[in-house]
Amino acid sequence: MAEAEESPGDPGTASPRPLFAGLSDISISQDIPVEGEITIPMRSRIREFDSSTLNESVRNTIMRDLKAVGKKFMHVLYPRKSNTLLRDWDLWGPLILCVTLALMLQRDSADSEKDGGPQFAEVFVIVWFGAVTITLNSKLLGGNISFFQSLCVLGYCILPLTVAMLICRLVLLADPGPVNFMVRLFVVIVMFAWSIVASTAFLADSQPPNRRALAVYPVFLFYFVISWMILTFTPQ
């Protein structure tokens, strides 16, 4: 009888300890989400209140977008290892530059048969189709850049070539001749190199090191074709 009393006593003393420990753990774990729930909604509400733009006027919205586009133009003109152009992408700049370039490449003559230069639609298609092709190429090579980020960078980096087009049109107002051509050639080459450097600064890091040249070469070809269209432009 004494042995029987001792044997049930041991498990009796051991069993309640883990049970209480489990209960205390459960109670402790229940407190944590309550605290989390209290703080997180407040922060999100504050952010929503800060980021809300429904109350601002149309002028403020347009000015903010124009500032963003202008800031990206400055990033292209002074290219450095920056993620701004990739983080906050938009397609306004590429559209503006593409339309401007295509319009400036139109000739003044009304005779459509003699005009063998690129038409508006041809320039537009080459710019956008070229950018899409380069983007697909970089993604197929394993690049970690998104589709629209690549389009954004390639489009914004047309800015130097658009400036070159403007300068060429001004230079062509003078008398045509070899000096005129040499000036235009120099301007186009400088701006072409500028576009390559700017786009490479943004896009090269998104590729594996052993395939960087494979991704940069199509960009070179793309800006080369645009430069050729600009250089061969003649008003008459």
Partner: peptide, 16 residues
Amino acid sequence: TFSYYQSFFDVDTSQV
């Protein structure tokens, strides 16, 4: 799928 076409571009600069 995209990965199907990605296998056709599985090549390095030195190989090209």
